[in-house]
């Protein structure tokens, strides 16, 4: 199932970049190279069990508008500070505790924190992030964990350990 999905995505990318639908040689070579890539991924154990693209993707589409709105707010904020004087900022480093453990959810959360106003993720550790905040308001906003509550339902089982690591440890 996952393998088929990977093949379809790769094939779509190939067709998008080549733009040739009627040249038989190019289409066939595209299919062959996509199959080769899928085979290599299979051999390298890159097709893990920890991602559920079919369940996560619709939830991600609901999450996207909120993220875009945050980006707009963040850009307006940063633009105002760029044209103003440098005394308008009081930067500080904040340690933010996080509960989610799933690698995909952690990556999404780190990216979301970077894109929300006034905060940039500096370091990701086991149970906390190091976040650089521009102002005190931004610090409060990231500490109340609203981003985490939005990211967590997107990935099923996001507060558990990485399933791939568990299977490796048990086998």
């Amino acid at each position: 199932m996952r393998t088929l999905l990977l093949f379809l995505v790769l094939m779509g990318f190939w067709l998008l970049l080549s733009g040739q639908f009627d040249n038989t040689f190019l289409v066939v070579s595209g299919i062959v190279s996509c199959l080769l890539a899928v085979y290599c991924c299979h051999r390298l154990n890159l097709i893990g069990e920890s991602y559920h693209p079919i369940e996560s993707l619709p939830r991600f589409l609901f999450y996207l508008p909120w993220l875009v709105w945050q980006i707009v707010l963040a850009s307006l904020d940063v633009t105002r500070r760029s044209w103003g004087t440098s005394s308008a900022i009081q930067p500080r480093l904040v340690k933010v505790p996080v509960k989610i453990r799933h690698p995909l959810a952690k990556t999404l959360l780190a990216n979301s924190i970077t894109l929300t106003p006034g905060t940039v993720t500096v370091d990701v550790a086991e149970d906390h992030y190091l976040v650089h905040a521009l102002t005190e308001d931004a610090e409060k906003g990231v500490l109340d964990g609203s981003a985490e509550r939005r990211v967590a339902p997107m990935v099923p089982g996001s507060d558990e350990e990485d399933p791939d690591l568990q299977t490796e440890a048990s086998s």
Partner: peptide
């Protein structure tokens, strides 16, 4: 214009994306 390296990350991350 930002005064230090870490605050320079903010415009690079967000304004460019938008």
């Amino acid at each position: 214009r930002m005064p230090d390296f870490y605050s320079r990350l903010h415009p690079a991350g967000t304004a460019d994306t938008l």
